[in-house]
Structures are given as C-alpha cells and as structure tokens.
Amino acid sequence: MISFEALLAQLMNGLAYSLLLFLLAAGLSLIFGMMDVINLSHGSFFMIGGFVGIALGGVMDNWWLGLLIAVIIVAILGLIAELSLLRPMYERGHLDQILLTFGLALILEDGAEWIWGASIQSLRTPETLSGSVEILGVTLPGYRLVVIALGLLLAGALWFILERTRLGAIIRAGVSNREMTSALGFNIPVVFAGVFVFGVALAGFAGYAAAPILGVYPGIDFEVLILALIIVVIGGLGSLTGVFWVSLLIGLTQTFGQAYFPAFSAIIIYVVMVAVLLIRPQGLFQRKYAG
C-alpha cells in the first residue's frame, strides 16, 4: 500500500536530487553549448569546490561567505587553465580537447589527493539549515530545500542572462559566427574566457553545494563527470533547457525507481540513456547555439 504522504515524500526527494543533478551538469553543458569545448575536467573543479569549501569551513563560520570564496578560487583556477591550456585548443578538434582536459582531470585528482588525502570528507551545513522542515505531513531536511532553491535560482538566472541580456546576445553571436562578431568590435577571446570561467565556477558552486550531501573525496570527480555527461548527452549536447528537464527526468526516475523497484536502481539511469539514444540519437532537446 503506497500512501499519499509516501509519494509526496519521494517526490520531494526526487526534486532535491534532480536539482542537485542540474547544478552539477549545468557548467559542463554551458561550456559545450557556448564554446563547443568538451571539458572533461568538469568533475575536478566540482571536487575542488568541495575541498576548498571544507578547508574554509575549518577557519570560518559563515557558510555563505565560504560558498562565495570557494567559487572565486575555483574560478581563478579555471581562468589559469583557460589562458594556459585551453586557448590554443579552440581551433583544434574535439579529440585534442578531450585528451587535454582528461589529462588535466588526472593531474587535479592526484593533486587533490596529495593536498587533502584519500579519505572522504564532509562539509557541515550551517545550523540554520540543518533542521528538518515539515510540508503537508512530509519531513524534509532543510538543506534539501536549499538545494531545490539554489537549483531553481540558477536555472532562472542562466536563462535570463543568455536569452534576455546584451551579454547573452554577444555570446550567442560569438558562437554562431566568431569572425563576424569580432569584426563588430567585440573581443571574442575575452568573451570565451568569461564563458569558460563561468562554467567552471558553476562546477565549483555545485561541488560546494553538494558537499554536505555527497561528501568529497578524490574519485568523486569522475563519478560526477560521468553523471554530468549522461545528463548532457540525453538532454541534447549543449542545450541548457535540455539539461534542466533531463535532470528532472533522471532525478525523479532514479528516486521513484529506488523507492519502488530497488533491485533495478543501479541501472535505471543507463536504461533511460540507452532508450533516449535509440529513439532520439541527438538527445531530447536541440542544441541552440554552437555547432
């Protein structure tokens, strides 16, 4: 007998997990969609965001300030990577980019293990967010609501920036015709560096926000990368709208699958991926910009 409360509880669990997935996949999709670069070091920046957050938690109490500083530190690392490694790669094919960013991911994982050790660590949630909240008879941890809110805010902000602002228009123009946009007087290398840094910063943001739930350890970088790649592929490479809806699809299927068909829970996400790719090889949503 499945009660209404149980269904509602699982729905909230699923929403929280979905928006966590959206947070961790958004940056990867953004960089691919806007720059046509496949960044396999995405999970590494996610991991670093978490580790830096835990290190900051040891010296300061303000969780939100920690979030801000962690994101800035990851963004600076992203800028260094863009200037030194990725910039010469834009004219080359995807294979070169994949090799380069994969190598970077291996180096960053070893570096993280060297600095922070191999054990799993965890970020504490602030006191004010660590209690439980009751909604319609369903108990939900306060922090899960924070994740839902952060995910929705981020989705709204990304949509607004890309579709409704002048900056978004310049980025879209630069993607569809780089030479013409530079000829109009826009500094394309700066725009591209900005997009890359922003995408990487999103990974760091997600790593920090996920750390209280998932923990952080060397190895989570590749687990996250695989999840993010699956979501981006099902969504249609580079489509942010796709990432949003697919995160919901995967998060809810996974949660309800685990709840009611636990024997299959380890393979649900792959079944969804295979089914989508067989029916719509290009993914559920069309990529709008680069390509």
């Binding site: 669990n13 709840a259 380890a266």
Partner: peptide
C-alpha cells in the same frame, strides 16, 4: 530489507521507505 546499490549518491528514497 531495503538494500541500496554500492556507490549510491542519494539515500533519500531508501530512508523514506525505512521511515515508513
């Protein structure tokens, strides 16, 4: 008996079932 796969990220659905 509520078993979760090795390497599960999110135990929320299992925990909700256990609570029930």
């Amino acid at each position: 008996t509520v078993n979760a796969p090795l390497g599960t990220n999110d135990y929320s659905s299992f925990l909700t079932n256990i609570r029930g």
